[in-house]
């Protein structure tokens, strides 16, 4: 990151700002989401523990339910659905995307529990028709998606690209 500040005493983060020196700014243009249809309540999940736990999960965490992938759904289908929703809210076309980054921790596709190579970003790119995009996967746990934006922000601010997309999916049922 050419314009990023190095970590110095009293300076804890690698920060980039609108005033970091690049010739351009970088804005968030659209956001898309794809949620699986199936839901699982905390009550149902805790009713299936092997041991009698006495854990009141909903009271403890505030989680009433969560969406969970069903048959036919996987990392690839959710990622592609989210990318398409993002394009549906965008003024841009898939062909405008110059860089597509997948930051998914899970990479299930088809009947494969984990597809390691080629990267998931390639399949997403092909599915949405982002024919001009350079693509790669980037892994940074639960901070992955913001890390992707961090990388794109610098490239956009420097003028290397005009438009990029980050896609992330979490399917805990791998």
């Amino acid at each position: 990151m050419a314009q990023a500040s190095n970590r110095q005493p009293g300076h804890w983060l690698t920060l980039q700002s609108a005033d970091s020196g690049g010739p351009w700014g970088c804005r968030i243009e659209s956001v898309g989401v794809k949620l699986p249809a199936e839901r699982l309540t905390s009550r149902d999940l805790m009713s299936k523990t092997s041991h009698r736990t006495h854990i009141q999960l909903e009271r403890l965490t505030g989680i009433h339910e969560r969406h969970v992938v069903g048959p036919g759904e996987n990392s690839f289908t959710l990622a592609t659905g989210a990318a398409r929703d993002c394009l549906a809210h965008s003024q841009l076309q898939a062909s405008d995307i110059e860089m597509l980054i997948s930051t998914s921790i899970t990479r299930s596709k088809g009947r494969t529990s984990q597809s390691f190579e080629p990267p998931l970003s390639l399949y997403i790119k092909q599915a949405i028709g982002a024919t001009q995009a350079v693509n790669f996967d980037l892994s940074n746990a639960c901070a992955g998606m913001l890390t992707g934006v961090f990388v794109l922000q610098d490239l956009v601010a420097q003028g290397a690209i005009k438009c990029g997309m980050v896609v992330q999916v979490n399917t805990s049922r791998t």
């Binding site: 609108a18 970088c26 956001v31 898309g32 969406h67 005009k162 980050v166 992330q168």
Partner: peptide
Amino acid sequence: LGDAGAAVMVERAPRGSGI
């Protein structure tokens, strides 16, 4: 943990605007 997919598009903006 819950399952979800999300995507975000970023684009060039005038200097001093955006993020």
